[in-house]
Design a binder for these strands. Structure first.
Lengths: 175, 175
DNA sequence: CGGACATTTCTGTAATCTCCGAAATTAGTA
DNA sequence: TACTAATTTCGGAGATTACAGAAATGTCCG
């Protein structure tokens, strides 16, 4: 695929952002490309367009599929995989957030529970144990909130999003 | 400071998490330590407790201050800085989210605007320009939502958090 | 001003991460 | 079964990042 300057910029920037988010730069670039591409692309085309080694593209695509950001489709008379990104930006943000929760937030909650339990019998002073409890509690609260919102139907989610801070009007009172 | 096993685990895990979040491991460990410590600590004490080089502790503390996760305080008759973390977990989550928005999300929005403008005159096909617009639009929507919620008084925020998905009851109808 | 202590910056090294090319594997075709 | 194309895995060179220790800078006091 032929890239215009703006497309190059987009892909480059997406790659930098990915790096900051702890995602491999190439992985993010490939995702950006697939996000822009109107048609599914083969691994080969991706290599050519971004000048990356075939092997890396393969690895990156696997990772993106792990994040459920990229899916494959088949075309008649072609045995190659054709890759395309999840189309909708709303879905995309959801997927990324959910992925991070799964991989980074939930394990921390678990670890905190273990630490808190362990602390009962290893001489950890009371005020530190209280700190554990407080930390776990607050994090759990955020997680519960997110989990509930995530379960709502899409239409409700977008409605809430549009409403923004105006939602506060419906709250009991004060503030 | 003397670390019990559970405290060591906590600090170690926090460090690993930090690494996944793109934060330097030592930085995250120091933050964990300060989060647990009931009293402010000097850089020297942090070195001893975590067995890190003085120089790195200095750099890490600077970075944590940049994130506004750590503040310094003074004590009479002591010219050393005493470091302590932001106490409240709720504040902490807010600070982290706000920091990430500032450093990673907002620049992307800006870059997208530039890319979209650039695309007008460099031969980028219409459907790609539409994709830019859609991407920018959705990301902007999330950002607007967050910005509004962030401005609400703390009490309102916690109320919303507790309410969770039940908030949907107040929505106009359907879904 | 000079000395003592605290902090930051600099420098070299160790550890880690990225990415290419080659080899191995898998899948489709005759 | 053999042949070919597509994909994945492996190994190591090159680049980046993290870190300790040394040197430099800054700050406070007399």
């Amino acid at each position: 695929m032929q890239l215009t300057p703006s497309m190059q910029d987009f892909i480059l920037h997406w790659g930098e952002m990915g790096a900051k988010w702890g995602v491999n730069r190439s992985v993010a670039q490939i995702h950006a490309l697939l996000h822009l591409s109107p048609d599914p692309m083969t691994a080969e085309e991706i290599c050519d367009t971004l000048s990356l080694a075939r092997s890396n593209v393969s690895t990156a695509l696997k990772e993106l599929q792990g994040w459920k950001l990229v899916k494959t489709s088949r075309q008649l008379g072609d045995r190659r995989d054709h890759f395309h990104s999840v189309r909708d930006m709303f879905d995309l943000v959801n997927t990324v957030v959910e992925g991070r929760r799964e991989r980074e937030y939930v394990p921390t909650l678990e670890a905190l529970r273990i630490v808190a339990a362990e602390a009962g019998s290893d001489g950890t002073p009371e005020h530190i144990r209280a700190r554990y409890a407080e930390t776990l509690d607050t994090m759990q609260q955020f997680d519960d909130w997110y989990s509930e919102i995530a379960k709502l139907p899409r239409g409700t989610q977008t409605a809430l999003l549009k409403l923004g801070a105006k939602i506060a009007r419906f709250l009991p009172k004060g503030s």
